[in-house]
Amino acid sequence: MKKDLISIDDLGLEQILDYLDLAARVEALPNAEKAGLLPGKILATLFFEPSTRTRLSFESAMCRLGGRVIGFSESANSSTAKGESFSDTIRTVEQYADVIAVRHPKEGTARLAAEIAGIPILNAGDGANQHPTQTLLDLYTLRKFFGKVDGLKIALVGDLKYSRTIHSLCRALLAFDGVAMTLVSPESLRLPGYLTKAAAGTTATFRESESLADALRDSDVVYMTRIQKERFPDLVEYEKVKDCYRLEAKMLEGAPARLKVLHPLPRLNEISPDVDATQHAGYFEQARNGVIMRQALILDLLDKRNDI
């Protein structure tokens, strides 16, 4: 049966760990060997909404495995203007490629694509729902920095209410052992209650903190997210909180040496550029890990994992 990657909720802990191991094996391969793994294979990147970073990461992953890439990236408006149904696009493109990475502003599109297509589908983001490759690369990044995910102390900072990345990461972290999460957000952008409730019966813990400085003193990881102006009905409120969740190098002076700062990128103002030069900046390495994780996933979905 063909494999897809649609939702992090489809994966058990065992499968997640297996993907982390596979990614580690991919990373250990010499570049020359990697480049010979997928000759003649084609990845189609169908981006019905723009996400340059994610698309380039998928394309880089495929190219570095010796495969080729076709695809498109639509502006927000033009995909509907064309009038072809999503189902028809998938049925057509599956004739052209061996694996499809799809991003779409509507929820449920990746699952539908997986039902329609006879070739593997990778969900590169379906509306507000899922973005599983981001979650897997985040977990891979944690394990690379710390050798494990179990027992890590992770501060989640910024917009915890709307961030799909945060929700998905949270749910995945609940499956590990004893992860302690500190939630740092404005009152109006708190983590949804269903997620904190989901921690009941697991070994994970949540605590809320008003202060970023406080979270920096006692964390292994600070995971920053964008606070978007348009999320605030009241701009006065936005002006009040925006700087409370901005990280600068001088705030990291008393932080433990092991502390790593992560961010799904692109960043706006929430991490000052002067953080980049500190030993704590982990976000560019995180982006690099995205390519490695996507390579592992493409290899697995194309049934090539035994070749490495």
């Binding site: 149904s85 999503f86 509507k106 929820e107 449920g108 539908l112 509306g127």
Partner: peptide, 30 residues
């Protein structure tokens, strides 16, 4: 914003969260 509403020819599926529950999850948009 679920794709099944944009493409009504798609067959919907709703799966029970757990036995006894009155809540169901859309198989597409979750």
């Amino acid at each position: 914003n679920c794709i099944t509403n944009a493409e009504p020819h798609v067959a919907t599926r709703f799966k029970r969260l757990e036995s006894g529950s009155k809540h169901f999850k859309c198989a597409h948009c979750e």
